[in-house]
């Protein structure tokens, strides 16, 4: 299989970037999208050119490191799939594929397809946790958690922090990411004491990082590789409103 890849090349944070086309041949349908980039990079390296920089690590769709806009869609055409798990059987021989980094004000491009997502860590620092210092825990069975709540918490907690939601949002909003954590912790009994302050603090950190507001377009959930539902944003609104009413 043969492809033309048009890839965003940008030397560093301050440089101007541009799309550059490369032909890659000898590909197989069983390859992952990142393995195609590996082949291209091998080709570039032996030719004495600089390989394309891209973040990746586990290559099994769970670490959240990889992320790129493939033909205009964050993580590419297959639903519920990260770029590393996207396989070439979903493309046709001779295709031209555009590959770009996440584009959002709060995610500056570092190099080529690599962006700076440290703003996500800052949102978690603002309150995306339950304060339970090591050693302070009661027996795990002290508080039963209804299965439906545990399952709902898990569903929200499945977020991998890849940033596709931000890349897809016309406002560059990270509301799905932020709300997923608020919903995960706020659904569990252990998360109740800090629930009102958590939502407001995380939201403040979200805004401060330069992410935009949510206008319910739903693009985020459409590209989310873990299928985080849009309803988590409702939980966030509920908690923020609740905190405002209580004056916290």
């Amino acid at each position: 299989m043969k492809l033309t890849l048009r890839i965003w090349r940008q030397k560093d944070r301050d440089a101007r970037g541009r799309m550059v086309a490369y032909d890659v041949d000898g590909l197989s349908a069983d390859m992952s999208f990142l393995e195609v980039l590996d082949v291209l990079n091998e080709q570039l390296t032996t030719a004495g050119d600089e390989p394309v920089a891209f973040d990746h690590d586990c290559r099994e769709g769970i670490c959240g490191a990889c992320g790129m806009v493939i033909n205009g869609v964050a993580h590419g055409p297959q639903k519920l799939t990260t770029a590393c798990q996207l396989h070439m059987r979903h493309f046709k021989d001779g295709d031209t594929i555009d590959v770009e980094p996440w584009r959002a004000r709060a995610f500056p491009v570092v190099k080529d397809l690599v962006v700076d997502r440290s703003a996500f860590d800052r949102i978690i620092q603002a309150g995306g946790y339950i304060s339970a210092p090591t050693g302070s825990a009661p027996d795990a069975h002290a508080t039963p958690v209804p299965k439906v709540d545990a399952d709902a918490a898990f569903e929200a907690a499945a977020c991998i922090g890849c940033g596709a939601c931000v890349a897809a949002c016309p406002n560059g909003s990270a509301m799905l990411f932020t709300a997923a954590k608020v919903a995960h912790l706020g659904t569990l009994p252990q998360g109740q004491p800090e629930r009102p302050s958590r939502a407001t603090s995380m939201l403040a950190a979200h805004d401060e990082a330069g992410f935009g507001g949510c206008t319910n377009t739903g693009e985020c959930t459409a590209v989310c590789p873990k299928g985080i539902p849009l309803t988590v944003i409702g939980s966030l609104n509920h908690d923020v409103l609740g905190a405002a009413v209580r004056g916290r």
């Binding site: 946790y129 339950i130 339970a132 090591t134 050693g135 302070s136 825990a137 009661p138 027996d139 795990a140 508080t143 039963p144 958690v145 209804p146 299965k147 545990a150 399952d151 918490a153 898990f154 907690a157 995960h184 912790l185 569990l188 252990q190 998360g191």
Partner: peptide, 12 residues
């Protein structure tokens, strides 16, 4: 115990 207190959503 520690992980449950932190909000790790174990299967129930």
């Amino acid at each position: 115990d520690q992980c449950v207190a932190q909000g790790v959503p174990f299967a129930r």
